[in-house]
């Protein structure tokens, strides 16, 4: 590579504005200066290379290439533990009579939730569409009392296409929509889907 001494035979002249050496190259009038690589630029380049070498060595040569996987498993284990705790608390905490009374009192607030979240599958009046008719006294899951209805709404039936709403709705909202669903009992809407599951009454 050309060195930067004034005696360099490849330096043609000094640039008239910047007083820097101009090389003896010319292409269609384009000339090139003989400036060295900027120091700060070279440092960032060397820095990145050094980082890359160290990172790859530690991570992929000495390490086992499972860092992300382990991180994930650790974090997921923590979430699962949390979920198990919550589930236990929920199971223990559901008092059939208290829940029944509570949801009835909150039923009115459940209508907007039902309309936006449930009607697409269960029909505007609960008559059944993709999901079963919710107005009859036949139930696929449980006996149509507050606890099993609340639970099926909260946990869903993934395998059969009923989404779990526990993650999407707050506990109060779950209770409200449970109350609303139960309030539809016996409403006999038009176009009702045939009963499914077990008749309970």
């Amino acid at each position: 590579m050309a060195d930067n001494t004034p005696h360099d035979p490849h330096v043609r002249r000094m640039d008239e504005i910047l007083n820097e050496p101009v090389l003896d190259h010319e292409y269609d009038g384009i000339e090139e200066l003989d400036n060295p690589l900027p120091g700060w630029w070279l440092m960032t380049f060397y820095g990145a290379i050094a980082f890359a070498v160290v990172y790859f060595t530690v991570h992929s040569i000495i390490g086992d290439n499972r860092l992300a996987e382990r991180d994930y498993q650790q974090q997921w284990a923590a979430i699962e533990a949390q979920q198990a705790e919550q589930l236990a608390a929920q199971k223990a905490g559901l008092d059939p009579e208290a829940l029944a009374a509570e949801v009835v009192s909150m039923a009115a607030a459940g209508k907007p939730i039902y309309d936006s979240r449930c009607a697409a599958c269960h029909g505007g009046a609960g008559e059944g569409l993709i999901g079963p008719n919710l107005t009859d006294d036949s139930w696929i899951h449980g006996d149509g009392t507050a606890v099993p209805v609340y639970e099926v709404i909260r946990d869903g039936v993934n395998a059969n296409g009923m989404p779990p709403w526990g993650a999407l709705l707050s506990e109060d909202e779950l209770k409200q929509v449970t109350g609303y669903v139960l309030s539809l009992q016996g409403s006999n809407p038009p176009n009702a889907k045939a009963p499914q599951g077990n008749k309970v009454n």
Binding site: A2, V22, L33, D34, L37
Partner: peptide
């Protein structure tokens, strides 16, 4: 360089 009519900053950098 054509539009500015100036030499390229650094051949070595190129």
């Amino acid at each position: 360089p054509k539009a500015a009519n100036r030499p390229v900053y650094s051949y070595r950098l190129s």
